[in-house]
Each structure stands twice: as structure tokens, then as C-alpha cells.
Computed example of a mutant assay.
Amino acid sequence: MSITKKEVYQELYRLLLEKQKEIVESIGQLKQSAAEDTKSSAGDKYETGREMVRQEIDKAELMHREYRVQMDRLKSIDPSEKHEKVKIGSLVATDRAAMFIAVGFGKIEVNGQVVFVISPQAPLARLMMDKTTGESFTFNGAAQQLVQVS
């Protein structure tokens, strides 16, 4: 693996900050839109529009809280800590993919290499937990071998 855990950690941190910023801006725009909406329309139509905006704000605020939880979990990981066995905070390379066990974020790219950032509760992560380099496991009928754990 040509990337380090610290590089993956830093990119994930940056992406989470970016997502939080986007959500905060979106919430601000939605609130501004709701405030600018006047009752010049017919009553029911106006109330329906306001309710739809309210639902969008609620959804955005929920996403914002989730990103904050993910950031808190990420901050609890020490990217300089070396792992012999797979656990939370491990950067794992199998013969099929690179994965960072931290939060459920999805696919990111670090220095041109794809890394899947997965939650420790994900079925794939649970299969790898406590395994060391060289051990194998089967996920969705496909055998994989741990090539590197850091």
C-alpha cells in the first residue's frame, strides 16, 4: 500500500469538514428561503411550501449531526498508532481493496488510490476484526486475504 494511515485520516478529516460546511450553508439558505416566503399565496399552498422547507431543514440538520458524530469518532482515532490486528482505526489492505475502519463514509481517493472508509459495525469490518496480515476471510462468497494491517 503506497499510502499511509495518516494521509487517509487527514483526507477523511478534510472531507468531513467540507461536508459539514456544505450542510451548514444549505441550512442557512433553507432558513433564509423560509423567512423570505410571504403569505401572498393562498393559505394552503403557502403552508405546504413552508412545511416542505421545514422538512428539508430537519433533514439537513440530521445530516449535520451525523457528520459531527463521525468527526467525533474520527478524532478518537490516533493515526500514528500501529496495529498488528484489525481494529477501529486500522488501515487494511486486502488482495482486493484498501479499507480504513473508522466511520461509515464510503469511497475516498488518497493520492490516486481508492480507500473504502467503513464503520466498525459494517459486516465486512466485523469479519476482519482481530485478524492479522496473511489471514483470510470470505465476504459475499469472495475469499480475501489481508495483505497489510497498519
Rank of each mutant, 00 (worst) to 15 (best):
residue 65 R to F: 01
residue 60 A to P: 13
residue 57 I to Y: 04
residue 62 L to Y: 03
residue 69 V to S: 06
residue 59 K to L: 12
residue 66 E to K: 07
residue 69 V to C: 06
residue 65 R to D: 04
residue 64 H to N: 06
residue 58 D to R: 14
residue 65 R to K: 06
residue 52 M to N: 10
residue 61 E to S: 04
residue 75 K to H: 02
residue 68 R to A: 05
residue 63 M to V: 15
residue 80 S to T: 14
residue 69 V to T: 13
residue 77 I to R: 01
residue 84 E to D: 09
residue 50 R to F: 05
residue 60 A to S: 12
residue 50 R to H: 09
residue 51 E to I: 07
residue 74 L to A: 07
residue 70 Q to R: 03
residue 57 I to G: 04
residue 68 R to V: 14
residue 59 K to T: 13
residue 73 R to A: 00
residue 76 S to Q: 13
residue 70 Q to V: 05
residue 82 K to V: 11
residue 66 E to V: 10
residue 65 R to E: 04
residue 61 E to K: 04
residue 72 D to I: 00
residue 51 E to Y: 04
residue 52 M to A: 10
residue 81 E to A: 14
residue 64 H to C: 04
residue 50 R to P: 11
residue 52 M to T: 08
residue 61 E to H: 01
residue 64 H to S: 05
residue 65 R to P: 10
residue 66 E to Y: 02
residue 63 M to I: 14
residue 83 H to Q: 11
residue 57 I to R: 03
residue 75 K to Y: 00
residue 74 L to V: 08
residue 68 R to F: 01
residue 77 I to Q: 02
residue 83 H to E: 09
residue 69 V to I: 13
residue 86 V to H: 01
residue 79 P to T: 15
residue 81 E to F: 07
residue 60 A to N: 12
residue 81 E to L: 14
residue 62 L to I: 08
residue 69 V to K: 05
residue 71 M to Y: 03
residue 55 Q to V: 13
residue 77 I to S: 02
residue 66 E to C: 05
residue 86 V to E: 02
residue 73 R to H: 01
residue 56 E to A: 14
residue 79 P to I: 15
residue 68 R to N: 07
residue 71 M to V: 10
residue 75 K to G: 00
residue 72 D to A: 00
residue 86 V to G: 02
residue 54 R to Y: 07
residue 52 M to H: 10
residue 59 K to Y: 12
residue 63 M to T: 15
residue 81 E to Y: 08
residue 68 R to T: 13
residue 81 E to Q: 13
residue 66 E to L: 06
residue 69 V to L: 09
residue 61 E to V: 09
residue 59 K to G: 12
residue 83 H to Y: 07
residue 74 L to M: 09
